[in-house]
Simulated scan of single mutants.
Amino acid sequence: MEGIEHRTVEVNGIKMHIAEKGKEGPVVLFLHGFPELWYSWRHQIAALGSLGYRAVAPDLRGYGDTDAPGSVNSYTGFHIVGDLVALIDLLGVEQVFLVAHDWGAIIGWYFCMFRPERIKAYVCLSVPLLHRNPKIKTVDAMRAAYGDDYYICRFQEPGKMEAQMAEVGTAYVLKNILTTRKTGPPILPKGEYGTGFNPDTPDTLPSWLTEADLAYFVSKFEKTGFTGGLNYYRNLNLNWELMAPWRGAKVYVPVKFITGELDMVYTSLNMKEYIHGGGFKEDVPNLEEVIVQKGVAHFNNQEAAEEISNHIYEFIKKF
């Protein structure tokens, strides 16, 4: 982690921890997903920070060393994008290159809709722009498609999933989720021991995730718990209501989309059809490229770190 510096800044009424490398050059802003931290981008921060860019990765609201407001409703897309606009202002730049994964990717799409003038280009990992169905709320639609045991449905009730996670321990939860290679929508059968994400948690870690890496994640989540991250899921229906004015809005920011062929999102219902069948391109007219990584699962920024760093660089250097 040589050359990566850390500081705490005040944005939008909260204290936010950021990791950064590179003092000069265009800013590349990295947004992590669940259950992750700035640390998920350690390889890309090092790579881009060494290529003449200023790489910045925050712990998002509710995570790591950033404040976690107590109210569930303090985690809407508007709150998170508000934090990021304030961060960009604080960095003293007008525009950034945005790179985001998982929940960070969802926030990235909101950002592209709300403040497109602040983003030069967007490298999106794992989660494409999710179409807002005006007839049914997001979680209700997921329940209808996948049933009550779908992980997002299981995450909705405050305190319940936290208690189940506490039962099996932070280290188990993180190892279980980060190492999963199970495709398709994550279903967590009720009453089953563990979180259910990955019934085949390996005894040994994959080559891309060291014991030290896992220990870092565990040390932070043992302090904070998982509530901050779970609260993002608990705002999906509220986000659906708040996003009504953007119904049918297109994203015109230049985009490169990268996913693993084993990614749980990519292999869920109708996702491949949407990504490759023209729907995604219709919603994002400046979608320049879609990359599907062979043999790679959901956490592609860590599993295929060098390849992802190269993809980011090849895309953003054009602008």
Rank of each mutant, 00 (worst) to 15 (best):
G196H: 09
V81T: 13
Y39A: 08
K15L: 13
S71Q: 10
L236W: 15
R234K: 06
I18G: 11
A171Q: 10
R7Q: 12
K135A: 14
K223Q: 15
E303G: 01
G22Y: 08
G49N: 02
D65Q: 15
R132W: 08
V218A: 08
A297H: 10
Y146N: 04
P202M: 12
Y252R: 02
L84F: 13
M142S: 06
V251M: 04
Y233H: 09
N73P: 02
N133G: 03
A304K: 03
E273H: 07
K318F: 05
Y151N: 06
C112W: 00
V296D: 09
L130Y: 10
R132K: 08
K190A: 15
Q293Y: 02
M142E: 06
N176G: 00
V81A: 02
G82V: 05
T267F: 09
L90P: 01
A19K: 11
V139F: 07
P35F: 04
Y252N: 01
N237H: 02
G184K: 11
N300M: 08
C153H: 01
I107H: 05
V292Q: 04
M243P: 13
E289K: 12
L214D: 03
Q164W: 02
D140T: 07
L29R: 03
E289Y: 03
P69L: 05
H17Q: 09
F315A: 04
G260P: 07
Y274A: 02
K182D: 13
M165K: 05
Q164K: 07
L242C: 08
A244M: 09
C112N: 02
P189M: 14
G147W: 06
T227C: 09
F111C: 09
Q156E: 07
L236N: 15
R61Y: 11
A144T: 13
G279H: 10
E162G: 05
G184C: 11
G260N: 03
A144I: 11
V56C: 08
Y53F: 15
N310E: 15
A55Y: 02
T138I: 11
A145K: 10
T224A: 14
P26R: 10
